[in-house]
Design a protein around this nucleic acid. Structure first.
Lengths: 353, 353
DNA sequence: CGGGCAAACGTTAGCGCTAACATGGCTTCA
DNA sequence: TGAAGCCATGTTAGCGCTAACGTTTGCCCG
């Protein structure tokens, strides 16, 4: 039992190799190994080579948990999201992950069961305890956004798609502008008025789209028709669409998302009212299928990927700066004109057909 | 400088409270605090109460990084996924997160940039280094699935939606059965043959759907028509649909997903061929919008949430058992009959219209 | 030629927790 | 009444890493 401690010959140790194993094999201290890993310039090139060779030989992998304990940083970000099955949130999440990876961070996802204050607070707390370096909250809901006002201030936090919230920087799409451009587009085609099927009233996106629609009509001196409240689902679009199809004065509809627009499309088709010749329709989101609706849907494109990556960059800046400072930003949407909108025909014309 | 170390009066310390702070305030050792946190029965109720009160007073949060270093477990799972923007993967991810949360785990997502062997290997390695306790790979792609054969065997790993792979347990939807039931449904409606628009040939799901379709036709003594290769996109469905619309012998089409079915729908509508009276159409997936297509789409529902949660449970069993042992399972899909399929009319009948 | 000063490394002391063992006080029962 | 034994706790030693400081070279220059 003389050199029991020095049996370094079996290259493959039982347990995974740690830093000191590498150091021993390379004939240096574990600290030098650490320096090599962290790219310190204070290592002679030949030493560096020896260490790298030893790491390779032992199949060494740095233990990031130990590193996190020593440095106090986990290189991990938390994302709080609601229904990540929907196209919008899913794309945003995707954009975040891409950007996080590029920035050297990992992304932990925490889905919400419900959109209320305590649920958001719980998710944020959960992520905090897990040790994330920062948190991104995708909070399109009114109450969820409010919860951020009470969020802990000792961890960097950026909100995505939340309305203007105090104390927390927000990255979002300019919903108002999107809705306004959709409405303006319909008015420019000669429609006397534009009906709007909205999302749920407690969603911020929904509210701002309503405002964009309403103010655009009012600016044109048009009294907005009654608001039709939906819930983002194709079903809601279908139900409202059926009712609208019986109203011959309706010639232009702006649905607050593409799913509801799809429902309208079907209702109109069933009622024998042709789109776009009799009724023009605009959606919102520009889901990948929108060009293949019957007819292809005019809609407002939101660049979710951009929103996600911009929010992530903002969060990382906040982390690097060691606290809150950055202010949010707005991503501009883009009207995509397809075949579901058309210059309005006079009442007489459409009767002739 | 007598009691410099004992100034425990300021309840809010500068730095976050740690276990020994709690212990000091409660008059116990840090280890007893640890016992309380971990629910050890060997703590007197009154002591437990004191400790809990102290934790609350100090706003103590356990440091999970330190715990992970000491225990060797992070309570974190890694998920490797490809295009998580699509409905299927997004739903699977959602199901995984839900189940992970319930089981007390966090979910780290690593998206793939490309579907090839090295990309999968890289993502798995990345997650391993980050210290996850297990990995879930959503690998619907042939090469990606093959990469799992070379995956590290020293970390629990379960594949989702991968074809039969050796060495790795797989949870997937029974694609073959789904395609077979779709095809059988069309045959039972009296169609002489069924055309199939498939997904990309290097996707496992796509291959199995093709097999289900082909074998069902052959079992019925029908020579399968030429396979139409698509790429999951509505565009591909549209292109093939246009071609099929010019072929009057086509009365039944099975599209490998709902997006492509949507494209077919549009192509047929443009060509003036009515669905379902002239052509019956079946999709695959049952996306939420499928009931609101024009007409509502008959399709094969996949329970992605179930796939995700089942895969997760399997992974956790594997972790708890300390290694590979479990075998995978198949989730059965369900044919949802809607208005896009109809009993075939004789050639004469359809000419009469 | 010796003192000073970097460069290149080694040593030590934590990060905050858990696991394993040690200890003291109290019960239990021959 | 004392030895055995158990309950509730304390003590100690890591987990694998980094930060901070200490030490050894070698070289330059007055």
């Amino acid at each position: 039992m003389d050199v029991d401690d020095e049996r370094i010959e079996p290259v493959q140790l039982r347990r995974p190799a740690v830093m000191s194993d590498v150091g021993r094999l390379a004939g240096v201290s574990h600290q030098t190994v650490s320096r090599v890993i962290n790219g310190s310039p204070k290592v002679r090139p030949e030493t560096r080579q020896r260490v790298i060779a030893a790491m390779r030989e032992l199949g060494y992998r740095p233990n990031s948990v130990a590193r996190a304990l020593a440095t106090g940083r986990t290189n991990t970000l938390g994302v709080v999201g609601f229904d990540t099955t929907l196209y919008g949130p899913a794309s945003t999440l995707f954009g975040i992950e891409r950007a996080a990876h590029e920035a050297g961070y990992f992304m932990i996802v925490a889905s919400l069961k419900a959109l209320n204050r305590s649920s958001v607070a719980y998710a944020v707390e959960r992520l905090r305890v897990q040790g994330v370096d920062g948190i991104l909250v995708i909070a399109p809901h009114l109450e969820a956004a409010e919860a951020l006002g009470y969020a802990p201030i000792d961890i960097p936090l950026v909100a995505v798609e939340a309305g203007p919230v105090e104390l927390v920087p927000v990255v979002a799409v300019n919903q108002f502008a999107g809705a306004a451009s959709a409405t303006r587009h319909l008015l420019e085609l000669g429609h006397q008025s534009v009906w709007h099927i909205s999302g749920p009233s407690d969603w911020l996106e929904s509210r701002e789209r309503v405002e964009g629609w309403r103010e655009t009509l009012e600016a044109a001196g048009i009294e907005p028709p009654p608001l039709l409240a939906g819930d983002w689902s194709a079903r809601a679009g279908y139900e409202h669409g059926r009712r609208l199809s019986r109203n011959p004065s309706v010639t232009a509809i702006f649905a607050a998302n593409d799913q509801m627009a799809l429902g309208v499309l079907r209702a109109m088709h069933e009622a024998g009212r042709e789109i776009p010749t009799e009724v023009s329709l605009v959606g919102f989101d520009d889901v990948p299928e929108a060009p293949y609706f019957t007819p292809p849907l005019t809609t407002v494109r939101q660049d979710f990927i951009e929103v996600g990556s911009r929010a992530l960059r903002l969060l990382i800046e906040t982390i690097d700066a060691g606290g809150q400072l950055a202010s949010g930003s707005l991503v501009e949407p883009e009207l995509i004109v397809r075949a579901s909108t058309e210059v309005v025909r006079s009442h007489v014309d459409s009767k002739e057909v």
